[in-house]
Design a protein around this nucleic acid. Structure first.
Lengths: 249, 249
DNA sequence: TATAGTTATCTATATCAATAGACAAATTTG
DNA sequence: CAAATTTGTCTATTGATATAGATAACTATA
C-alpha cells in the first residue's frame, strides 16, 4: 500500500491568499531540500503549472520571498535560492542563550529593550511560587546572533530578591551574569512548555519578520539546583530562522 | 520605563485576510484566558472597534470559528466560547503516545493509515545509522484522543530487522507493543528537533484543520537503552489543539 | 409591554487577489 | 547574430475581501 506523499494542493478562499500559501510552499521545499541553496528555482511557468495557479500568482509569492531575503530574481537567468540555514537552538537543563549558539554563529548578545516593576499575573505568580499580585520585575529582551534577531523574551523575577537586576542586565547583557550578582551560580530549567502561533504586530517589529510569519513560543521556569524558582519566562523564536533542539534535561 | 504590551494591531495586505487574523486573535485570546470558556465574547461592535475593523469583518472571523466549533453564536444573546482545552503532550526520554495523554483524555489510540517499504532518504539513513538507500519500512499513523486527531506521524524502521512491524502496528495500535514483538522491551528518545510551519493540504485533511492553521513538527530518533537507533520519526501536531510539554529526558 | 442590547441580513461601493494575454528586456545557447 | 529561455511590465476582467449604513429578528429586562 502506498502512503500519500504531500497531495499538496492549495486552498482557495481560506483567508490565506494563494500567493502567501505558495510562498510558504517554496519555503518548505527549501527547508526539506527540494529546492537547493544557490541553485535556480524552476521557471515561473513551471511553478505555476505545478501549483495549479496563474504565473502572476507565483510571481507575487516570489516577490514576497525576495523581500524577505530568501530568493534573488535575475531577469533572463532565473530565480535563485539564497543560503539561510536555520539556527538550532538547544533547550535542556542548562539552557543558556550565548553558549547554545556557539559554533553556529560568530557573534551573539542579548539586548535589554525595557524593564518594569508590576504585580504578578496569575501564571507568573504560580510559576514563581508567589502570591498573586506580588511585585515582580519584568525584563524584555531580544537575542541577536550575527546581527539577526533570533529571540524575543520576557522574563519575570521576584522584585524584592532581585532588585536591580534590570541594571545588571543592561550592563552585562547576560541573564547568567546578572543572576551571579545575586549569588546564583547555577540554575536549571524546571519546565518548558512549547507552542506556536502567527506572529503578531509586536513580533513582526521586534524580530524583523514579514506578516504571516510563525513564531515558536516557550514558557519556561528556571530554578536553583535545590528547586527554588527564580525566573519565569516567555520567549518567542521566529520559526523561519530558528529550530529548537531538545537536549537532555 | 514601560514595556510595550502587545500593540496587537493587524496587518493589511499581508497575504492573510483580516478576518483570518482576527479569528487567530480570538483563538489566542481564548488560549491565554482573556476570553473565558462558556461566557460571552464582547459584542461584535466592541470587537470591531477594539481591532480597528468593520463589524462585518469581525462577523466573518466569528463565522469561521463557529464553523471550526470554537464559538457558538446565538441571536439576541451573544457569542459564546465553547470549551476546548489544549492537550499538553509530554516529550521526554520515554515519550509514549497513550500514556502521555492519560488524565487529559478518556480515550486515545493510534490509527495506521498506510505503510510502505522504500529506500532510506539521506536524513532517515543518517538517523538510523544505515547506508543511504537501505530498505526501510515507513508507517504513516494518526493519533486520536476523544475522537479528535492530535498528531500525524511518519515513522521509519530498518526493514530487515523489523519485517512485519506494519502488521503488528495495525493489530495492536501501539508502537510500543509492536516493538515488543521484536524483543524491544524499552526504548528511549535520543534526540528531538522541533519546528513549526503552516499546515499544508495533507495536514489539513489528516488533522481536520482549517486553512491557515499551524502545525508543530518534531523530528525524533528513538534508541534502545544501549544506544542502538531503532526508529526515526517526523510528527506533526495541530498547534491550536496541542502544546508540547518538555519533561526530563 | 416597551426598551435596550445583541446577532442576522440586505444593499452598495471600493480595494485586493487572481486570472488571462501580450510584449519587453535580459541572458544563455546554438 | 539568431533563437530560445526566463524574468519584468502593462492592460483588462473577475471574484473575494473589507467598509458603510440601514433594518430585521431575537433575547433579556425594567
Amino acid at each position: 500500500m502506498v502512503g500519500r506523499l504531500a497531495a499538496d494542493s492549495i486552498e482557495r478562499r481560506s483567508g490565506v491568499s494563494l500567493w502567501r500559501q505558495i510562498a510558504d510552499k517554496i519555503l518548505h521545499a527549501i527547508a526539506i531540500g527540494d529546492f537547493v541553496e544557490n541553485t535556480a528555482l524552476p521557471p515561473e511557468v513551471v511553478l505555476a503549472e505545478r501549483y495549479g495557479v496563474n504565473r502572476h500568482t507565483v510571481r507575487s509569492a516570489i516577490s514576497a520571498l525576495v523581500q524577505e531575503g530568501v530568493l534573488r530574481a535575475e531577469q533572463g537567468r532565473g530565480t535563485f535560492v539564497l543560503s539561510r540555514k536555520r539556527l538550532s537552538y538547544p533547550i535542556g537543563a542548562r539552557t543558556r542563550f550565548s553558549t547554545g549558539l556557539q559554533g553556529q554563529t560568530t557573534e551573539r548578545h542579548i539586548v535589554l529593550l525595557a524593564s518594569s516593576i508590576e504585580p504578578a499575573s496569575q501564571r507568573v505568580a504560580e510559576g514563581l511560587g508567589l502570591a498573586r499580585g506580588a511585585e515582580v520585575i519584568r525584563l524584555e529582551t531580544r537575542g541577536e546572533a550575527d546581527g539577526r534577531p533570533v529571540s524575543r523574551a520576557a522574563g519575570w523575577f521576584e522584585a524584592r530578591r532581585f532588585a536591580g537586576i534590570d541594571a545588571a542586565m543592561a550592563e552585562t547583557g547576560s541573564i547568567t551574569a546578572s543572576l551571579a550578582r545575586f549569588g546564583i551560580d547555577d540554575y536549571l530549567r524546571q519546565s518548558t512548555v512549547l507552542s506556536a502561533r502567527h506572529a503578531d504586530a509586536a513580533d513582526l517589529a521586534d524580530l524583523d519578520l514579514q506578516p504571516g510569519a510563525i513564531v515558536l513560543v516557550t514558557v519556561a521556569i528556571n530554578v536553583t539546583p535545590d528547586g527554588q524558582p527564580i525566573q519565569f519566562s516567555e520567549s518567542r523564536f521566529p520559526a523561519e530562522r530558528v529550530e529548537l533542539r531538545l537536549s537532555a534535561l
